[in-house]
């Protein structure tokens, strides 16, 4: 019983939004509790999708994710592999480096980074939003790969080194296939990060044609305050990919014993 109440508390905000998104848009809003609208209509979703702007914002978001995701996986797994194959002193120093970088709050970085991007002339370009991928998005991701590679038997890598295989070759054909679950988890977290990022596009994107979804949606809300069902449908549509990625990858999240949470 208690468990059901807990689940209800955590599910209910999304369910409220979902319920309203299925309500006819031209009716006055309810003044008594209404769990489900009557009749239930899907038209708001059609209307949200028919709004060309939202599709454009969605494509902009997708472009950022499509570039940032593979770059993150390469940079983070390279760093993790190099750390795992280093001597103990380098390993200790690198873990400390990652932890210190993790402890720097994002709010300390936003504005100076905005200035740096401005000086580099990248304001109002999608590159400004992809930049974090160059550092593997979060030092935690490098750490996750490091932990995963460290669990693999050292002989494997020594044998490959004997054969004279280059580091990149070992990484691609030997190391990466061994850590599939970690790559999945990092991939899912990276998706959630770039798909959900609101602050960088808010600061760094000026022209409406280049907005990503979160900024575009917050603007829609300002103009469409009276059309709540439509706003909710758009918000649900925006949240769906994140929910889908989470559900597909949840066993790596919820079963993972490592600190997947620091991102």
């Amino acid at each position: 019983m208690v468990t059901v109440v807990i689940a209800a508390v955590f599910a209910v905000p999304l369910l409220f939004a979902l319920s309203l998104s299925l309500r006819q848009i031209d009716r006055t809003l309810p003044t008594t509790m209404e769990w489900l609208p009557n009749p239930i209509v899907l038209g708001n979703y059609g209307q949200a999708l028919a709004d060309g702007n939202l599709i454009r914002y969605g494509l902009n978001s997708l472009l950022v994710v499509a570039v940032a995701l593979p770059v993150t996986l390469v940079v983070a797994s390279w760093a993790g592999l190099a750390m795992a194959r280093s001597g103990p002193a380098v390993q200790r120093r690198m873990v400390a480096f990652c932890v210190v970088a993790l402890l720097v709050p994002h709010s300390m970085i936003w504005l100076p980074r905005f200035l740096m991007v401005k000086w580099a002339g990248l304001i109002d370009t999608p590159f400004a939003l992809m930049l974090p991928a160059l550092m593997g998005t979060s030092p935690l991701f490098a750490l996750l790969f490091y932990w995963a590679f460290r669990r693999q038997p050292a002989d494997l890598f020594d044998a490959a080194a004997m054969d004279g295989a280059s580091a990149v070759r070992v990484w691609w054909s030997l190391a990466l296939p061994l850590v599939g679950p970690t790559a999945m988890a990092v991939g899912a977290l990276t998706f959630l990060y770039f798909w959900g990022d609101y602050i960088d596009p808010l600061l760094m994107i000026k022209s409406p044609a280049r907005y990503t979804l979160p900024v575009g949606l917050s603007i829609l809300q300002q103009f469409d305050k009276t059309r709540w069902p439509l706003v909710m449908a758009a918000a649900v549509l925006y949240a769906l990919p994140s929910i889908g990625v989470f559900l597909a990858a949840q066993r790596y999240f919820l079963a993972g014993r490592r600190m997947l949470w620091l991102s």
């Binding site: 940079v75 390279w78 190099a82 280093s86 001597g87 480096f97 970085i109 504005l111 100076p112 593997g136």
Partner: peptide
């Protein structure tokens, strides 16, 4: 063998310093 991998560490370290260390100091 560890030296062979050292180069793989560079992008991460350089980018982290530029995107986290420098802005924090700049703030």
């Amino acid at each position: 063998t560890s030296r062979r991998y050292r180069l793989l560490l560079l992008p991460f370290v350089i980018a982290t310093v530029v995107l986290v260390g420098v802005p924090a100091a700049l703030a």
